[in-house]
């Protein structure tokens, strides 16, 4: 029997438990392990501790919002290379630009399609 490599860990942060459930459901079925956080500060902390392969962050979160959390991850050499996908309801031009300016790799608008999120996760992780 072949030894299974640990499935890649994806960190998901959102203050809405429904989103966490939906994303976790889809990602676990796509073969990833999932860790969750309910605010930006917790997300940054967990990222430092668990060293996930990728982080999916909601923009509107308490403590640190998605942009601030992304910046925090980029500022810390330990977490700087973790790719970030932002989930945002506000999709106007400025916010998308701010998202990329803070260091995110991709963004997804809410309401979202879990399948599409999974595809994007795969795309990013596949490249590495």
């Amino acid at each position: 029997m072949t030894v299974n490599v640990d499935p890649p860990l994806v960190l998901v942060a959102d203050d809405d438990p429904d989103i966490l459930d939906l994303v976790r459901y889809r990602l676990e079925r796509s073969g990833y392990a999932v860790a969750t956080a309910t605010d930006g500060a917790e997300a940054v902390r967990l990222a430092g501790e668990l060293d996930p392969a990728l982080a999916v962050l909601d923009v509107m979160m308490p403590a640190l919002n998605g942009f601030e959390a992304t910046r925090a991850l980029r500022d810390d050499p330990q977490t700087a290379r973790i790719p970030v996908i932002l989930l945002t309801t506000k999709a106007q031009e400025e916010d998308v630009q701010e998202g990329f300016a803070s260091g995110a790799d991709d963004y997804l608008r809410k309401p979202f399609s879990p399948r599409e999120l999974s595809a994007r996760v795969q795309a990013i992780l596949g490249r590495r």
């Binding site: 429904d18 989103i19 809410k110 309401p111 979202f112 399609s113 879990p114 399948r115």
Partner: peptide
């Protein structure tokens, strides 16, 4: 119904 508020695409 509550979940649907967050979803689009084939899930919806």
């Amino acid at each position: 119904g509550r979940l649907s508020r967050n979803l689009s695409g084939d899930a919806r």
